[in-house]
């Protein structure tokens, strides 16, 4: 039961990594729950904390906090986009 988690832009810098494989803890089944789980890691991880402007995607599609996360998914966290 693992997911691939990707981080982009300022979030990738703040967290010091572009990606990781993560065993989904019991009870973590949504984007919001995964984000809260990661934010609770401590030092530096508050960048994912509540109140921070963080967007997410599941399997390369924009996803809200309620979106389901399942084994094998690719979940990405990133700041609001600034292309164009």
């Amino acid at each position: 039961m693992t997911v691939k988690v990707l981080y982009f832009a300022s979030l990738r810098e703040a967290l010091g990594r572009p990606a990781e494989e993560l065993a989904l803890p019991t009870g973590v089944a949504t984007v919001g729950a995964l984000r809260a789980h990661l934010a609770a890691r401590g030092e530096g991880w508050q960048a994912l904390g509540e109140g921070r402007n963080v967007r997410a995607a599941v399997n390369q599609r924009m996803a809200g906090a309620d979106a389901a996360v399942a084994s094998g998914d690719e979940v990405a966290f990133f700041p609001p986009v600034t292309g164009g």
């Binding site: 832009a9 700041p79 986009v81 600034t82 292309g83 164009g84």
Partner: peptide, 25 residues
């Protein structure tokens, strides 16, 4: 263009005299 600005996953990092900075949405 309007949708691209808010939905396409690009991020800009600028180099300025004060140092590099990520552009805020």
């Amino acid at each position: 263009m309007d949708y691209l600005k808010t939905r396409a996953p690009f991020w800009k990092r600028e180099e300025t005299p004060e140092g590099a900075r990520w552009v805020d949405a």
